[in-house]
Nucleic acid binder design. Structure first.
Lengths: 225, 225
DNA sequence: GAAAAATTGTGATTCATATCACATTTTTAT
DNA sequence: ATAAAAATGTGATATGAATCACAATTTTTC
């Protein structure tokens, strides 16, 4: 029992609905693993044997498409990583890869199912999370297919600043190819648009670090572009 | 109590997990409504007060995008129509419109929640459905953004034949504009590609009716195009 | 059953973005 | 520290598909 879930600062909203007794069971059936940047956490096409929960760090969810990889989304703690697979297929329908040093808890699937069956508050919370993420992915798909590259890149930058780093200055930990896969654009287009943004005084880039200077402009591009 | 859920031939997999007593409660809190082709069943931006379940017919789920509508998917019975909204937002994040005469059951949301809380088999089944649909929408989004129009149209035609009508000959109930919104293409492109398919001997079109003549060819276009 | 409205077909043109082809810079490994 | 590998910048070109602009059907309505 290497970790005590009871004292975990990164409990999921669902896990907070568990009784002390249930939390103890969770502790006993949960293993925390560290992943370095670039490490594969879940691999598309393999069997899923656990429920994965992102405790710290940052990961990307990606799917092999007909022509190239698509980065579906970037996920920050605290979130479950493989719920759709857990209940649907037994085989992972997507991959998860660490993009910065991350800690992931692997929870025994049969315990997880038992908790769902016996604790309605817990299962309700999981349901809510699933629904939220489905709505989000609908919306994301619409944006992906209708906006053009500038707008989609603006979206991603705003998402990083507002939702992931909570700061207008942050390190861009994925390369331009991955950003391309995230916004459905080629690596070259990403490079070009990024330079444009710098030239237009919207961004300042130094090495891996990005600083948003003109957020309004970015919001406008996100909305209209 | 106009309808008796107990005798309903179109029960959901989840509803089959309910006890007789629960089914009776469902009957008492469930209203079946008929919709004609083109009728709006759920409207994006309005409050959702019920859980909707498609008993018969065919509907489309669509979202207002930044530039035009996107038809997210076509749904056939027997499926819940607004689950993600039910638990996430109170406000509908998408619209549902009937594309052929349809019957929809509206279930009281508080009863639905109570069933979820008290019947683990029921809630588990709902969870499974949600997960399946999320995985599906991931996959669909990848296809949407990576395939080109011919491939996406081939996909849609195969989906109609294999999953919706279970026949290689079927009526196309939505117009080319809607098909365009479903595959993210312009109305004109849909028309062009459809003509191409006819010219290449893949389809036969007479009026609203479509017959797939060379399914292998279509599969190939779906895979490679 | 005629008029109006909606849907479809098809060419010409435009446009955003992919692709190709390198040069340059940065990062990683030995 | 130096070589090798990975990532990035940027021009030229190609291309799929949107848009525009009508004509021709088909469907709906009164």
């Amino acid at each position: 029992m290497e970790n005590k879930c009871a004292f975990c600062d990164y409990k999921s909203a669902a896990a907070r609905k568990l009784s002390n007794e249930e939390i103890d069971k969770l502790s006993a059936n949960c293993l925390t693993v560290r992943f370095k940047k670039g490490d594969s956490i879940i691999r598309q096409g393999t069997y899923s044997t656990n429920v994965a929960y992102l405790k710290s760090g940052l990961v990307k969810i990606h799917i092999d498409g007909p022509y190239h990889v698509q980065v579906v989304r970037i996920i920050k703690p605290s979130s479950y990583l493989g719920l759709p697979t857990t209940f649907g297929d037994k085989i992972n329908q997507y991959s998860v890869t660490s993009i910065e040093e991350s800690e992931v808890c692997f929870i025994d699937i049969s315990l997880f199912r038992k908790l769902l069956a016996t604790n309605p508050d817990f299962s309700n919370q999981i349901l809510i999370e699933l629904c939220k993420s489905e709505l989000e992915s609908y919306q994301k798909c619409v944006n992906r297919t209708q906006k053009q590259t500038r707008g989609k890149l603006a979206d991603v930058l705003l998402d990083f600043a507002d939702n992931i780093y909570h700061s207008d200055s942050f390190p861009l930990l994925i390369n331009q190819e991955d950003i391309g896969n995230l916004v459905d654009a080629s690596r070259e287009s990403v490079s070009r648009v990024l330079s444009e943004f710098v030239k237009d005084g919207i961004l300042k880039i130094s090495g891996r670090n990005i600083e948003i200077i003109n957020k309004n402009s970015l919001r406008q591009i996100s909305a209209k572009g």
